[in-house]
Design a protein around this nucleic acid. Sequence first.
DNA 1: TTTTTAATTGACTAATCACTCAACAAAAGT
DNA 2: ACTTTTGTTGAGTGATTAGTCAATTAAAAA
Lengths: 193, 193
Amino acid sequence: MISQLKIDKRELLLEAATKLFVERGLHATPTSAISKEAGVSAGILFHYFKTKDDLIDELYVSIKKEYTSSILNDIDRIKSDLGKLRLIWSNSWNWAIDNNLKFKFLLQVDNTNCSERVKSHPEIIAKFEKFKNFIQEYVDKELVKNIDTYFLMGSMFALITSMVTYLTLFPKKRNDQAFIEQAWEQFYNYLKP
Amino acid sequence: MISQLKIDKRELLLEAATKLFVERGLHATPTSAISKEAGVSAGILFHYFKTKDDLIDELYVSIKKEYTSSILNDIDRIKSDLGKLRLIWSNSWNWAIDNNLKFKFLLQVDNTNCSERVKSHPEIIAKFEKFKNFIQEYVDKELVKNIDTYFLMGSMFALITSMVTYLTLFPKKRNDQAFIEQAWEQFYNYLKP
DNA sequence: TTTTTAATTGACTAATCACTCAACAAAAGT
DNA sequence: ACTTTTGTTGAGTGATTAGTCAATTAAAAA
């Protein structure tokens, strides 16, 4: 086996970190707690990650990539532009609910001033630009109101996040088709010209 | 004078704490940094606040009260229901922009699991209920879509927060009446039945 | 098998933190 | 004026933290 154990311990540490960071907050979580939760020795964390901040950075970037990728899942299976927009919408909150810890970790870092360096990671900027162009296309096609793209993206993300918070609090609603339909209607009413 | 200095130092500490908590994060800010920023000795902080957590709690509650109060400013000067809703909307983001540090502090605490005890403060629960009834009234009057009030409140607050983030990033837009009008239109399109 | 390389441990260190306390200063009360 | 209460200081304390390192084990290469 080609260092299977190595990959395992790294993953164990990242998973443990996600859980504890969300439960206790970034700075309130000692590295010793992370290694304990992962069931490994305290020192090994610094073998895989140079510093605690490096661990946070790597965790953020990997989760963000996972999230942004999931948003475009199955997008080619849909023909209509509006259908695609709806799929992006539902992909977003579905991933966030199915990966609630990871999503909460993203929110926590995004709401923190202390890690600006993470957010300016090139791969993340690239994904952001890609998504921005996507929205711009909808504006050009007059499927979405002609207003500053940054404003649109910000409010879209805000609405999706509040949807996630609500569905996490009331999980039954996730299978309530009438509710989902109404929520989508509201979302698109917000966007349409 | 009736202990004017006492009040002053308390206020100085709270202001310094707000600034540093937003800049560095709750747990990354030592109490020593707070007292230094406030220009007082390290020990005095624990004369006014039993513990650091107590300081955070008090700060949160006082800011939250200030914010929720500002939301209903001048509400009686407006006659129409829709006008009142619009005033609530604009009051919300105006306060948040004018008191950006305080607003960011609220967001930071709200996005943290470590201080559940703060959010369940009776005065805050009361304000929340009051606002909830307010929304319910609009639903009953059929000015707002008939969908779960918690869902409505969550998304309203999300939209307002994204408005604040945007206007903080692009301050000029705040005086752009056409933009504000469009933003309001979108907001109400989201809510209307 | 032997050698080399990589993974893993946990005791250790230097720094930092929340909080205390004895001493002093200023106000208020008498 | 004197006493009591309240405000204020900053050095000190014990606990906790991120990160190190010499030693041990396991895997890979020779």
